[in-house]
């Protein structure tokens, strides 16, 4: 009887996600332009990828991206959350402001940074350059394009982590904090020995989600540089998107999507194990 309740959710999910995902895996072994009949070509798509400089560049950029987002925003979020715990007064105000970038559409955040900050003509970079301190537009230099995009995503993202960590910190038992305080713990000691161990499950979960999300990053790259200049900021998701819709190499795109998923899958296995523990409690 109650089985029927699941039908709408599962039906939509299977039709939109499961079946097309299965087809994508099949297409990864085919050559297909999206119109005619797919032709089975075995592992040729994957072999081509392994020989493709752009694929390795994109993969490398995803790894750099993961490294940046595993450290910078998590450190910023933890620090700010701890400081909010110390400040107490005004913490809910800080929390709302830090969270604000999360509710702004990525397309808009991207354009504001592009035009108002990075642009040599209309942005802060241009203003500083005209004042005699030349600042190049990071998005147009192959060596800095990826970092230019990462800064925008960091601005958008770190407040979310801060709010999550703050919520977790408030659940650390008061007696432990009180005991450390009476013993005269400094800020760093409090952080290192009381607060961080107290919210370790939350930090672990956020790190796992960060790895998964880092391999999915698309919007900011696609809007800010489209993977350029000269593929210097290409990531796997933009490579797949461009292959499918610009080059009509759907088989290659599917192969890239499968590679992204493999990275996700490994991390997801860990994630589901953690969730399973919670469900059993």
């Amino acid at each position: 009887m109650h089985r029927l309740y699941l039908i709408p959710t599962l039906l939509i999910n299977v039709v939109i996600i499961f079946i097309p995902a299965a087809l994508t895996i099949a297409l990864a072994f085919c050559r297909w332009d999206g119109i005619g009949m797919p032709v089975f070509i075995g592992l040729a798509n994957f072999r081509q990828l392994l020989a493709d400089r752009v694929f390795w560049m994109a993969l490398g950029n995803n790894v750099i991206w993961t490294a940046i987002f595993l450290t910078v925003p998590i450190a910023m979020g933890l620090l700010a959350a701890t400081m909010m715990l110390i400040a107490r007064r005004g913490s809910s105000f800080f929390q709302v402001v830090y969270f604000l970038p999360m509710v702004i559409a990525t397309a808009i955040t991207a354009r504001v940074w592009q035009g108002m900050i990075y642009s040599p003509l209309t942005g802060i970079a241009g203003l500083v350059t005209r004042a005699g301190f030349p600042v190049p537009n990071p998005l147009t230099q192959p060596s800095t394009a990826l970092y230019g995009i990462a800064i925008v995503d960091l601005w958008h993202w770190w407040g979310f982590l801060c709010v999550i960590f703050f919520a977790a910190l408030r659940q650390v038992p008061q007696e432990q904090i009180e005991a450390a305080r009476i013993e005269g713990a400094s800020f760093w000691q409090m952080l290192r020995y009381v607060l961080l161990p107290g919210i370790r499950p939350t930090i672990t979960l956020m790190m796992i989600m960060t790895i998964i999300w880092s391999f999915l990053v698309f919007d900011f790259v696609y809007i800010l540089t489209q993977g350029g200049p000269a593929f210097s900021s290409e990531v796997l998701s933009t490579l797949a998107y461009r292959s499918a819709f610009y080059d009509l190499a759907v088989g290659k795109a599917a192969a890239v999507a499968v590679v992204i998923s493999l990275f996700g899958l490994a991390t997801t296995a860990v994630y589901i194990r953690l969730q399973a523990k919670e469900f059993d409690q």
Partner: peptide
């Protein structure tokens, strides 16, 4: 359902 939240959109977008 948890597993599908971590699937990249590109895995089902093209078909």
């Amino acid at each position: 359902l948890l597993a599908t939240t971590t699937a990249p959109i590109q895995l089902f977008l093209f078909p």
